[in-house]
Amino acid sequence: MSDAELSPDEVRHVARLARIALEDAEVEAQRAQLARILGHMAELDAVDVEGVEPTFHAVTEAPLRRDEVRPAEASREALLEAAPREVEGGFAVPQVMEGDT
């Protein structure tokens, strides 16, 4: 089984989509492993799937609905306690828009 073609730029692009910062050494290490893994997966190309429906989920029945009662939930305070940074009862994040003040 030969490796799939995968360039360092493609790895950087996917990492960007996944919002993961990769160092240059990591890009090459991941590229080599992913190319090998994807190369193995090329074996699926030989399987005849003509007319076969996908199985997105093992459960084929309609999902159950819970009773129309409000479940006991963790309090707002308890949830905010876990926040890395909290401001006025909300989750604070760094600046979103470039150039905003």
Partner: peptide, 28 residues
């Protein structure tokens, strides 16, 4: 330093190599 995206990327850089690999593979 930097904005929200930079924070996401720097935070998620702390996943271990196998978790990164699976996220990259799945995203791909």
């Amino acid at each position: 330093g930097g904005g929200l995206d930079a924070m996401y990327e720097a935070t998620r850089a702390r996943f271990g190599p196998e978790v990164k690999r699976r996220i990259l593979l799945g995203t791909y």
